[in-house]
Amino acid sequence: MRDPQMNHTKQRPDGRSASAGGGAATAAPPPAPARARRRPASRQWAAWAFLAPVTLYLVVFYAYPLYRNVDLSLRHYTVRSFVQGNAPFTGLKNYETVFDDPTFGPALMHTVVFTTVCLFFQYAIGLALAVFFHQNFRLSATLRALFLVPWLLPLIVSASTWSWMLNSDSGIVNSVLHTVGIGPVNWLTSPDWSLTSVIIANIWIGVPFNLVVLYSGLQSIPGSLYEAAALDGAGAWRRFWSVTFPLLRPVSAITLLLGLVYTLKVFDIIWIMTKGGPAGSSTTFATWSYQLGFGNLLPAFGPGAAVGNLLVVAALAFGLVYLRVQRKQALS
């Protein structure tokens, strides 16, 4: 299912270098390839020489920071011991602190709500737009490209633009609501609305990704199926539910699972727009973790790292499901 998408990047090598290589092939003595194949050991060495930089990089810049994070979460750190590095080992104490914290329940709740609502709308809107643009009308390619803009913008740009649009007194959103007779909503400053606000902004950012991936999924559905359905008298709505939707299931699964992993870790948008507030009303695990570690005058590195590790476990768990699904699809 993913192969047709890959083909965009997998360009055929250009003719010039290919023919040059071909010429070399005829000039070379024939037994050479057999000899090359009989020397797997040197090839192994060469391969790992090419992989060495990235492997070292993974160990130093992924594994070690992750290890430091686990270590942080198992010790009692203060600012002084953070610098000196002699914090006492306290086992799972930090995790207990986190579980008993009154923020835990709401943060879990917000993370679940934020993730599911964002995923649902990003997917639904992305799919509707993908089906719409798949009709290939005039301008459709250009407009589809323009839809990428929200996804390409730096998150701080999107977040600050939305902050100003949702400003209680001078924001365009409240001004428009006012003209239809709805009173001012304190989007970012009221605990009732802050989570909704960051969800709206995040949906806006996520729609383009869903649109692009689902659109390339639609392209791999053979047009003859639609013609057959149309001949059988199926209307557009019926064609969508009996042809498009079922055949898009593999791509949908991939899109949603990836979306899940990436929505779980959304931090920038929430932090810039509300800092998780007011009164923790838009705090998710991601912002809570950062709040504990960096957001206060007295950093709580240990509990911060503990929350972060819970998030890592959740993200990796769903990530593994994603990889499984993807592998299964590649095999079938």
Binding site: V54, L58, F61, Y62, Y64, P65, L66, Y67, R68, N69, L72, F82, V261, L264, K265, F267, A286, S289, Y290, G293, F294, F301, G304, A305, G308, N309, L311, V312, A315, L316, F318, G319, L320, L323
Partner: peptide
């Protein structure tokens, strides 16, 4: 596989690890 899994790690976790290092 490790590279694919590495993409799943939340940025703030990496940031905290980097900070400590």
């Amino acid at each position: 596989f490790v590279l694919l899994a590495a993409q799943m790690i939340p940025g703030i976790i990496m940031a905290m690890g980097f900070y400590a290092v």
